[in-house]
Write a protein that binds this DNA or RNA. Structure first.
Lengths: 255, 255
DNA sequence: CGGTCGCTTGATAATCGTCAATTGATGTGG
DNA sequence: CCACATCAATTGACGATTATCAAGCGACCG
């Protein structure tokens, strides 16, 4: 974990490390302001942590490259991944209420982030109404995402969860940059299972099934979705697992 | 659903409908500002909706009395409750990103709320740095809660979920006001099941079991927790369901 | 008084977790 | 460079947690 301070002089005079890595929908003026409050970039190896649950909340982090997971810790050593982050996403937003990080933030692969002191963010925000609205929007977006995840975890079956996840990743990819043929998942089966409330084995079986059915090409971590329509059907209507003996064909009951 | 406008003249000169119903940890000066932006109070009967998923995001709502549920809608008519709200809680905070409500907000019982135009909130917030920090804190708190709920939905067993829920309600009650002997749940078994990702029947069985074991008194919607320690054990270590044949006593295997 | 609603309880079954064995990839040290 | 260990992933067999289906009961309401 190497930290590279960004000298004050440097800021906003040279091309900034964050340039082209800021969240979308940001006006030029705001980009300026934001790069001014970044103090360092940090490089992390796979498995290294940016923040620990319960630690003092001093920085927000912008993912420049790589990917991260946010891990909720529970009793008895249990834990669950509650969010994944990729480039241009802001991490740490749930810390404002307690002034503590509420999850661990851990790199899924070699990654680079940009570090923003909370103090400086708050000053910049009270000086600029647009910036306030942006920050509020980001936290609110996180809340919206978390509540959708609650729905996913509580109301969908295993095949529906996987389909939902893959479709979301694809939509993300589409919004960011072009995606020629497919994409690479940054997480292991176990991590994906943790996020979806399933086991590694279930994830593996379902991905194999998707492959066998020709819905997607799955090669290790590489995924190419072949039949968007079928995947949407998986998500919205569910499917029979290959494991299931047989679909219940509800025979007419005698009245 | 009756709406009662609060005349401009009236505001901050008379006792305000929101007084004593504002969120905790609010300075006197902020209370003043907040009551100034409230435009109406609204009375709702059980089942009436304050907001519909996808509708334009014009107001935040403060619960004055009663209780609400936030309902996420999914494909094929599925839905799940993602949050319950009681007095002094702010509803609608997930709407800032899309400028649309992301859930339905529906009254669980006859209730009263105070209505705040988003526009006015944002003006007040840019004028007052403390108010900004408060609002940010509330949204961030919501995010923290939702991520805890993700953990609950994805990582806990049915008995653990119920125990977790009851302990949270009790902690809430303790923070707000005194609680003599127990409390009344504002939601049906079905609504609680929706929130916890379980069915009505499972909720009913587990509450009966808690009663039978002497962990809590359960009488319809009224709950009195008798053994905090046992309930915490339910939450942290899990228990055997009464339905389960037998706990797997892992016999020593021959090597 | 009939009907709906909320709730309880029982019987059955299916989804998905657990346990186990295997394979291939990666990396490390002798 | 190869043996060895470790880790990610796949696949199978089995079982338990929890959903589904069903029946019944009391309360409340029009």
């Amino acid at each position: 974990m190497k930290r590279h301070p960004i000298p004050l002089l440097y800021r906003s005079q040279h091309p900034h490390p964050c340039d082209d890595h800021l969240p979308p929908d940001l006006h030029a003026g705001l980009q300026q302001r934001i790069t001014e409050v970044a103090t360092s970039t940090v490089e992390l190896a796979r498995g290294e942590n940016l923040a620990h649950s319960g630690a003092a909340f001093h920085h927000l982090y912008l993912v420049v490259s790589g990917a991260f997971k946010a891990v909720q810790l529970g009793a008895e050593g249990r834990s669950q991944i509650v969010c994944f982050y990729g480039p241009r996403e802001l991490m740490g937003l749930s810390g404002f209420s307690q002034r503590r990080y509420t999850t661990d933030l851990s790199a899924l692969m070699p990654s680079v982030v940009c570090e923003f002191p909370v103090q400086a963010i708050e000053s910049a925000v009270s000086a600029d109404r647009l910036l306030l609205e942006r920050l509020l929007t980001y936290v609110s977006e996180g809340l919206e995402r978390a509540e959708q995840d609650q729905f996913m975890l509580g109301s969908l079956t295993a095949p529906q969860k996987i389909a939902c996840f893959l479709l979301r990743v694809q939509a993300m990819r589409r919004r960011i940059g072009g995606d020629a043929n497919g994409f690479d998942l940054p997480m292991t089966r176990e991590e994906l299972g943790s996020y979806l409330g399933l086991t590694m084995e279930t994830i593996s079986r379902l991905l194999s099934h998707l492959h066998a059915q020709g819905v997607a090409r799955i090669d290790k971590r590489h995924v190419q979705i072949l039949r968007d329509d079928l995947l949407q059907a998986w998500r919205d209507e569910g499917v029979d697992l290959p494991l299931s003996k047989r679909k219940k064909s509800p025979e007419l009951r005698v009245a």
